[in-house]
Design a binder for these strands. Structure first.
Lengths: 209, 209
DNA sequence: ATGAATTTAGGACAAATGTACTAAATTTTC
DNA sequence: GAAAATTTAGTACATTTGTCCTAAATTCAT
């Protein structure tokens, strides 16, 4: 069970570097230091590798959710939410080829697509719950119109899914710089909803510290 | 000069349907009703087709900007901004393969990438100007923190670039439904910045009418 | 109308690629 | 320690794909 892990690790790196769509069986075998035949023994197709990596990412994110859920609700604050978002962003970045080739992968792997939709639905519920807790803690202003919180969830979800693609196209920065830049931007979407007390807590972050 | 246009039209449709990365020379020639040899005569590579389509999209968007710029500043309002965004969304949707294969295309066509970055920079300036005009017209609250307007521009730009990818993955709706849903979401990002008067103008839209 | 230029069709050809197969090597089991 | 099971390497094969070439057909200019 060692070679499989090795293959997945190298595939993750290679896919991230050059895009999962432009890697061949021979490319990956070479990068993993094994023969093409052996690669085929462990994974019949490259799609199978992609799928395995997807479920690895999901597992990593689930682990994060679990540790965040252990936090008492009273301790939740905009700052905590930011810290959690930033951690998630770092995990996503390690599997960024998935977000960069999103549409293509989803079209090729219907199972992944179905799973991802459920994941997004769960995330939607989580985010909504997050806002409710923040509101109960006096961190959020009440909605200015019906459905404002739901709209925020949709916007935040979109940014969460595609910030990497945006960074890839628009910025030249490295990993740390991108994560910092976009987790800050993510936080900024929350700013308009905050009470003065909530805003005060994150003001240094918004200023760029 | 007729076959070239025919090729581009069919390519746009085919790329939209199946993704530009999964189309072969023979696929496109067949769809255009011409021989592969003839296709090669007009476009040496598929990348050349993609590039031509990109510049078509840019031309269509520029035409829209020009007509919007003809509008007197006093007439600008959240509602007008929404109408413009919605038109742009419709144009983008006609070339959605470009947004769906964004990263891959940008990696393969450095010229397009460079051009697109400049385009985004211009858009950033435009959007910023838009907010200034809206603020001067009494439609916007002043920023709650320094740089809030700039943050909105970044968020709006990201949503503008990737709403189609998000729709492709998360929704089953058709074109009209998707455009309506996401141009509304785009508008919703503006809501928190609006004065009470500004919000009043778009409240029916946010409610879903 | 006729020669030149352009456009088109059809297919050839080599490179690349996924897949499958066989045999050797290594590990595991008893 | 020997047999069985697993893992690995190497390669062959058929298919696909981009590119190029030639000749026919069509259009254009004079």
């Amino acid at each position: 069970m060692k070679t499989k892990e090795l293959i997945l690790d190298r595939a993750r790196i290679l896919f991230n570097e050059r895009g999962s769509g432009d890697i061949t069986v021979r490319d990956l075998a070479h990068a993993a230091g094994i023969s093409p035949g052996n690669l085929g023994y462990h994974f019949p197709t490259l799609d199978a590798v992609t799928e395995a990596l997807y479920y690895r990412l999901v597992a990593a994110l689930d682990a994060q959710v679990a540790s965040a859920a252990a936090l008492p609700a009273v301790e939740l604050s905009p700052l905590r939410a930011y810290a959690y978002a930033r951690e998630s962003f770092a995990v996503l970045y390690a599997y960024r080829f998935l977000m960069l080739d999103f549409v293509r992968i989803m079209r090729r792997l219907p199972g992944v697509r179905a799973h991802f939709r459920e994941l997004m639905e769960r995330r939607r519920v989580q985010f909504t719950g997050l806002l409710d807790v923040l509101a109960a803690g006096g961190w959020l202003e009440p909605p200015r119109y019906p459905g404002q919180y739901e709209d925020w969830v949709a916007q935040a979800g979109l940014i969460g899914d595609f910030w990497i693609a945006s960074a890839e196209i628009l910025t030249d920065g490295g990993e740390a710089e991108r994560i910092a830049q976009y987790s800050r931007l993510f936080l900024a979407t929350l700013a308009p909803l905050l009470t003065e007390r909530g805003l005060a807590e994150i003001r240094p972050l918004l200023a760029g510290g």
